[in-house]
Write a protein that binds this DNA or RNA. Sequence first.
DNA 1: AAAAAAAGAGAGCACTGCTCTTGCTTTGGA
DNA 2: TCCAAAGCAAGAGCAGTGCTCTCTTTTTTT
Lengths: 254, 254
Amino acid sequence: MSTSQGSTSSAGSGNASLGARARARVEVTAAIKDEARRQLAAEGAVKLSLRAVARELGMVSSALYRYFPSRDDLLTALIIDAYDSLGESAEAALARADGAAPAERWIAVCEAVRAWALGHPHEYALIYGSPVPGYTAPEETIPPAARVGLVLIGIVRDALRDHGLARPPLPAALRPEAERMAADLTPDLPPETAVALVAAWAQLYGLVGFELFGQFHRVVEDRGPFFRHAAGQLAHGVGLVYAPPQDPTPRPPD
Amino acid sequence: MSTSQGSTSSAGSGNASLGARARARVEVTAAIKDEARRQLAAEGAVKLSLRAVARELGMVSSALYRYFPSRDDLLTALIIDAYDSLGESAEAALARADGAAPAERWIAVCEAVRAWALGHPHEYALIYGSPVPGYTAPEETIPPAARVGLVLIGIVRDALRDHGLARPPLPAALRPEAERMAADLTPDLPPETAVALVAAWAQLYGLVGFELFGQFHRVVEDRGPFFRHAAGQLAHGVGLVYAPPQDPTPRPPD
DNA sequence: AAAAAAAGAGAGCACTGCTCTTGCTTTGGA
DNA sequence: TCCAAAGCAAGAGCAGTGCTCTCTTTTTTT
C-alpha cells in the first residue's frame, strides 16, 4: 500500500557524490515534504501550514521559502508524490494479477485505487477532489497523473490482443471525437473502446469519491462487494468480458 | 439554470407579519448569504472570508456572528442552498422531459446535473468535491442532498411501471446488501436495480467531476456528446433501455 | 585568501476566524 | 406608559496564517 510514500522520498538515491551543502539540501527538502505529508494526512490540505511545518522541523518559517517558493509549490510536490504513489499501487496490483482474466485484472486495479484512496483520504482529496481554488495544476503533474490511466489502457490493450474485445456502438455525433481520442490516447484501440475506457475511468473515480466523501453514508453499507461488482460492470462497459479467445476481432454485438 | 439560486433566498416569502426587527433579520441573513455566495462563486470556498463579506455589506465582522455562529455554519447554509438549487434543476429537467422515453428522461436529468455543475463550479465543488477537512456535514444537509437521487429513482420507478426493466444479474456476495439497499431506498424496485442505480448515481458524479476539475483536459475535447453518450450508457446500466412496452415484467436477460 | 552564493534568523505586513466588552435600539410585559 | 430584557452593532484584541524584507552566518567557488 504505502510503497514509495513514506520517508525521504527522493533523497535515498545516490547523493554521495554531492557536496555537503547539496546533500543537506535534498535532506531538508525531503524532511519538509515528509512533515508536510504528515500534516496533510492528519488534517487535510487546507490546514497544511508552512509555519507549522517549519516549527515542527525546528526552523523558522522564512527559512522554508529557500526550499519551496510558496505554499502552492509545496502542495504541487505533494500532489506529484500522491499521483506517483497511487500509480505505483495500481501498477503493483496489475503485476500481482498477472495471468488472470482481463476483467479480473481490471477489477484488481480498481480495487487498488479504492484501497489507496481509503488509506490516504486527504491525499486522494488533494488530487481528485476539488482543486484548491486559484490553484491550477502545473504541467509537471500531468505525467504522474496519467499513470493509473495508462495501467487501465494496458489491460484493455492486452485483452484486445489475447481475447478480443466487445465493441459497444457509438452514436454518430461522437464519432469524430472518438476517433480523435483513440488516435491521441490509444492508437491501437478502436474508437468505441477509447470512449468507453475514458468514461469508465471517470466513473471509477465517481465510485471511489462517493465512498470516500461520505455520500454512501446510510446508502451503501457493505461497500467492498458493492465496489467489486461495480468495477466488474465498468469492465463490462469497456468490452472486457468473456469474448471467445479464439476470435481476436469479434463483431460488435447487436 | 439559476432557478432559486440568486437573491434573498428565503426572504421572499411572507414576512409582512413579522415585526421590523424580525424582518430586518431575515433580510440581513439573506444579504449575507447572497454576498457569501457571490464570493464563493468568484473565488471558491477556501477564500470565502467572513470579514470580506461583512466589509462588503458595510458591517463589522463581529456583527456577522449574530447571524451565523461560525464560518462553517455559513458554509452549511450555502451547501444546503446549492443542493436545493441543483435538485431543482434536476427536477425541472425531468419535468421538461415529461413523456419522453425513460432513457431520454434519464439523460435529460444527467445533462441538467452537468449543466448546473458547469454553471456553478465552486458550488458543485463545495457539495461534491472534497469536503473541507474537519467539517462534517450536519444532518440538515441530508434531505436536500437526496433530491437528485430521488429524481433518478423516480425515473426508474416509472420505467418499471410503464416499460419494464432489464435486470442485470447480481453476484451472490452482494445479494444481502442489495436487498438491504432496495428495502431502504427503493421498496418497489428489485435489488439488482437498486445496486445498479446507486452505482450509476456515483458514476454520474465521476463524469461530471472529471470534466469540472480538469481531468479531461487534453483527453476529451468535445465534451457534450461524450457526456450524453456516457449518460446513456449509465441508463443502460440500470436497465433503462428499449424493453418492449407491452411486457411490463420481463424476465432478466441471460 | 577574497569574492560569491546559499542558507538561516528575525521583524514586520496584511490578512484570517473568533471572542469579549461596551454602548444603543427594539421589543414585550407590568 | 415605563422599564427590564433581549437583540444588535461596533471596536479592540488574540492567535494564527502566507509571504517579504533585511541582516548575519556558513559554505562553496575563484
